[in-house]
Computed example of a mutant assay.
Amino acid sequence: MEQAENIIVGISIGDLNGIGGEIVLKTFEDPRMLEFCTPVIFASAKTMTFFKTHFKSEIKFHSINTIDQLVIGKFNVFNCWNEPVKIEFGKEDLKIGQYAVKSLQKATEALKNNNIDVLVTAPINKHNIQSKDFNFPGHTDYLAKELEGESLMFMITDNLRVGLLTDHVPVKDVSNHITSELIEKKINTVYSSLKKDFKIERPRIAVLGINPHTGDNGVIGTEDDDVLRPTLQKIKESGKLVFGPYAADSFFGSNNYKNFDAIIASYHDQGLIPFKTLSFGQGVNFTAGLNKIRTSPDHGTAYEIAGKGIADENSFKEAVFSAIQIFKNRFNYDELTANPLKKAPKSERR
């Protein structure tokens, strides 16, 4: 298979009452975006016309009912529904949540069938998407079920990558979830992703402790000594450059994070608070470890500013750029792995 020059980017529209429609339009109003990717928005022409009118966008889109009607180099809108939808910006609405689910399901189906190359998801409301037929905490968990591989929430920006041992787990349950098996699995996923998705041959990975001051020799909890340290030592002996555990409170402020290709945090806020502080709205949520590529902006529905035309599209735009670059890196890695002599210098060929 030859790599497509113009990568097809599938986009699930997210919560229609949030800022998803606005940041999608703003991202692709620059016609240069269509020179290196073809977007397919999974929503409806009527919905996108509403957004276009409301935000006074001059973007032109191509409405399609089947994926084979897609036109390369155009802003395609795949009709997941035909009925008009009542959009009330800033309002949490269970009916609107179901449209977000329809969009995500159709986009994921296209991704699984190789009709799109990558998936970028606009923000959803984790509460209003719930139903008897769709019971997932969010995108990551749903995609982990639908796609192959071991999923991991990987927050990425130019000079910082943060993975999580546990993601949407209550703080009171974090230590019970962290086992040697989980630690090994997550580190292996990060290590593999750094090599094939980010072109880093010998990744250096730092791991943050579970307890304050990594337990202070058992004074503030024993999980770091009993579970984390022995497991990290075992992984080091396998040849991977894994370091820690580090006390999380001083790790980022001391700029120690700059010495590593990735940092693995023990729980959600331990990793995402410093990441979002340092990334200044340029961060991307990448679901690493799956056989397909999915990214998203590092923010939510932002109901408080929805519909006002002031949403910042930079994180969403970075999610599109990241998905494209990861697709290219992974394609090249797979090509090189399949044919190791392809790019090797003549002196190394036998």
Rank of each mutant, 00 (worst) to 15 (best):
residue 100 A to L: 03
residue 253 G to C: 09
residue 292 K to S: 03
residue 250 S to I: 09
residue 301 T to F: 01
residue 342 K to Q: 13
residue 248 A to C: 03
residue 19 I to A: 00
residue 264 I to L: 14
residue 258 K to L: 13
residue 141 D to G: 13
residue 47 T to E: 06
residue 221 G to V: 08
residue 336 L to P: 07
residue 175 S to D: 15
residue 125 N to Y: 11
residue 3 Q to R: 12
residue 204 R to K: 14
residue 349 R to W: 15
residue 196 K to D: 02
residue 142 Y to D: 02
residue 21 G to W: 10
residue 314 N to E: 01
residue 339 N to R: 12
residue 179 T to M: 01
residue 164 L to C: 07
residue 277 T to C: 11
residue 21 G to T: 13
residue 304 E to V: 07
residue 339 N to V: 07
residue 215 G to Y: 12
residue 169 V to D: 13
residue 108 T to H: 02
residue 349 R to E: 08
residue 225 D to N: 15
residue 117 D to V: 10
residue 344 A to P: 05
residue 78 F to W: 12
residue 197 D to W: 06
residue 333 Y to V: 01
residue 234 K to E: 02
residue 120 V to P: 14
residue 141 D to S: 14
residue 310 I to G: 01
residue 276 K to W: 04
residue 105 Q to K: 07
residue 303 Y to V: 03
residue 41 I to Q: 04
residue 194 L to T: 09
residue 137 P to L: 02
residue 41 I to T: 01
residue 73 G to Y: 09
residue 218 G to L: 11
residue 51 F to Y: 15
residue 293 I to H: 03
residue 300 G to I: 12
residue 112 K to A: 10
residue 45 A to H: 09
residue 42 F to M: 02
residue 276 K to I: 04
residue 110 A to N: 14
residue 333 Y to M: 00
residue 287 T to Y: 07
residue 124 I to S: 04
residue 325 Q to F: 00
residue 17 N to V: 08
residue 89 F to L: 03
residue 22 E to F: 04
residue 197 D to C: 08
residue 263 I to W: 00
residue 325 Q to S: 08
residue 348 E to K: 15
residue 275 F to T: 05
residue 262 A to K: 09
residue 194 L to V: 13
residue 244 G to I: 01
residue 319 A to T: 07
residue 106 K to A: 07
residue 118 V to G: 04
residue 349 R to F: 06
residue 180 S to D: 10
residue 74 K to V: 05
residue 274 P to D: 08
residue 62 H to D: 07
residue 337 T to L: 14
residue 62 H to M: 12
residue 208 L to Y: 05
residue 299 H to I: 05
residue 178 I to S: 06
residue 137 P to K: 08
residue 95 K to I: 14
residue 123 P to M: 04
residue 213 H to M: 03
